[in-house]
């Protein structure tokens, strides 16, 4: 007689019940810790909504998660001033710490006042940038904040009314910006502001040349910088500097149609130099 074996899988599984119940209970009580690097990557890729889903909504004492949530909320469209004020309060609270996260939060708090709110408060932002730089001047966020402070001083704050005093105030920050790339950015901005406020050419050129010496200005600004030094030096009568920069432009940016005009400028310089030597152009 054929014997059919009895199929009883349940007794084997019964021993797993307590484990299954424990896992279910744990998953119901506490969500797994958010994957912060992935969330930050999403934020960097302009996917704030996705990042906020990953970061979850549960109350947390994890400051890194709080910072990530508040940062993502700045870009979670549509953003209301109410959202921004809540984020600002979070940044202010996180800024009370004594680590790099606190410095970043302090920087972002200033940015909310300067950039994000519909009605910027430049004075408040400047105050926060200054406080951050006082607290930890070597911090990268403080250094970046000093560049922003200079920009606000150059164009947005009501005082001083005198352009030369504005420029001097912003230039005084140069000695406190020790990171080379940020110092370059500040030198460049001081040069541009000098043009805007119609300052003497030598002071403008000095800032632009200083920016160029540090190098690496990204985008079209790097290309324009070479031309600016060449052209402004020509206007200031410094033919040697002008020639050097125009020739460099032809070497480095041969694809730009402005090279045609640069070649004409070099002919003008040759004519000036020949005239200065008493010869014929």
């Amino acid at each position: 007689m054929l014997t059919v074996p009895r199929v009883t899988p349940l007794p084997y599984l019964r021993c797993l019940y307590p484990l299954i119940l424990l896992l279910s209970a744990l998953s119901g009580r506490a969500a797994p810790a958010p994957d912060l690097p992935t969330a930050w990557n999403d934020i960097a890729d302009s996917k704030a909504k996705l990042a906020l889903v990953k970061l979850g909504r549960a109350d947390t004492s994890d400051r890194a998660v709080q910072l990530a949530r508040a940062t993502a909320s700045l870009d979670d469209q549509p953003v209301s001033d109410g959202d921004l004020r809540r984020a600002e309060a979070t940044f202010a609270q996180l800024a009370q710490g004594h680590d790099e996260l606190a410095e970043q939060a302090a920087y972002l708090q200033a940015r909310v006042w300067q950039i994000h709110l519909a009605q910027p408060d430049y004075a408040r932002a400047a105050e926060l940038y200054r406080a951050l730089a006082e607290r930890n001047p070597r911090s990268h966020w403080a250094q970046l904040g000093l560049v922003k402070l200079a920009l606000v001083q150059l164009y947005a704050l009501p005082d001083p009314a005198d352009p030369a005093a504005r420029l001097a105030g912003a230039a005084a920050l140069l000695s406190r910006v020790t990171e080379p790339t940020l110092q370059r950015d500040l030198q460049l901005q001081l040069g541009q502001a000098g043009i805007f406020y119609k300052q003497p050419l030598p002071s403008i050129i000095a800032h632009l040349v200083a920016a160029d010496r540090i190098g690496g200005t990204p985008g079209a600004a790097g290309e324009d910088l070479i031309l600016q030094i060449g052209e402004l030096s020509l206007r200031a009568g410094d033919y040697a500097t002008s020639r050097a920069y125009f020739e460099r432009y032809l070497r480095d940016y041969e694809v730009n149609p402005r090279c045609f005009t640069v070649k004409e400028k070099l002919q003008q310089i040759a004519a000036h130099e020949a005239a200065a030597k008493g010869g014929r152009p």
């Binding site: 990557n41 302009s46 790099e100 990268h140 940020l182 370059r184």
Partner: peptide, 30 residues
Amino acid sequence: DVGIAAVGALAREKADDAALRLRRERLESA
């Protein structure tokens, strides 16, 4: 601003990542 903050936070975790540092510099400078 948000992008810079995110890249800054990532750079905090990966201080030796040169590509990340360059990305941060470019974003900030731009």
